[in-house]
Amino acid sequence: MRTRVSAALSAFLDRQEAEVLRLISPDLVEPAEALRSFLDGGKRMRPAFCYWGWRAAGGARADEALEQAALVAAASLELLQASALIHDDYMDGSDTRRGKPAVHRRFEALHRVGGWEGSPERFGAAAAILLGDITLTWCDEMFTRSGFDAARIHAARPVFDLMRSEVMAGQYLDVLAQSRGLSVASPAEILERAETVIRFKSAKYTIERPLQLGAALATGDAAETGALSVALSEYGLPLGEAFQLRDDVLGVFGDPAATGKPAGDDLREGKQTVLVALAAARADEVRLKLLREGLGDPDLDAAGVAALQEVIVDTGALESVEERIAQRTRRALEALDGAPVTDEAREVLGELAIAATSRLG
């Protein structure tokens, strides 16, 4: 699946570079190369769930043209993911992504090496914003021209549009939560805020919406997809939340060799995750003060990260999040058991559920 998605993305980028970017200016070769590098990696989770949503609704590999269209449509979601991550890395001030320099850092370095005028940081920020914008635009273009007929694209368009709106809304709520900090709301409000962020910034557009998108492409009929769409939501939403909760754990305790980001990066960025919200709610005065002072400190060193990790463990927040991951995964698998999907799709979606929640990076 990853190989086929990567091939579809590569073919699309080849065409965009040859037919658009190079015709505009040779100076656009560097942005094209940056996007190739950025897209060369990742778990391809969203394309996988989109494709298997298509198969779950009756999409069959026997028709080669439809099979290829399903792969291309699914692969387009990697461009939406790229847009979100490029912008997210700039907003969070992240230095790396998947073990490579974040896009804004890459273009800062290009500016410095070139000895150009002005601020390298402003140039890097501008480049990241624009590359995030173009990948969002290309996501729409790749999806629309995937090879499905107009009726199927039209049937899937409401899910596609809603998915993109939800992730942008979730991103804003994430930024807002970081800006408000831990001092302006009750522990219950902080936790509710964190749960809303994971639902809309990640859970829905990682699993639930891709599944529903694939199903809509398979049937081409909103009425026919209705009952299946509900069943896919009952599987996809709790699984998406479990996926993001695992991501939150990795953002604090993950091995940089596996995650591609420095240990404790979410703490330096001030991410108000469910993990942090639970720790804040359960911490005594001393631990809460330590958490408030360290969270969001970009200069937090290894000792500072270790101190906050200790707070999270000692308050039971880590154990509680692991329990939530297990509970939501079980709920998803129980929903899958009763879902009106093909046997093959049920088996693969069960395997994907385990892969999404037990990963190391």
Results as ranks from 00 to 15, higher is better:
G214V: 07
I129G: 00
F253K: 08
I354V: 15
L110H: 05
K204Y: 06
A127V: 12
R359F: 03
G254Y: 00
K43G: 08
R180D: 12
G99Q: 08
D161F: 02
A281K: 05
L173M: 15
T329A: 11
D40F: 06
G124V: 00
C139I: 00
L162F: 01
L245F: 01
G99D: 15
V175N: 06
R4M: 10
I207M: 11
G42Y: 06
R98S: 08
F200I: 02
S94V: 05
F160E: 12
G350T: 13
E19L: 11
D248V: 10
R22Q: 14
S119M: 07
D284S: 07
R112S: 06
I153Q: 12
A218Q: 05
A258T: 13
R106V: 12
Q171M: 06
D95F: 00
D14Q: 08
E351S: 08
L79I: 07
A109Y: 11
V311R: 03
Y51H: 09
A65H: 07
V341F: 03
R193V: 10
E192Y: 01
G251Q: 06
S179I: 12
V313W: 08
F123T: 10
A34T: 15
T96M: 14
D255R: 04
I153G: 14
L239W: 03
A317N: 03
V5H: 06
W138R: 09
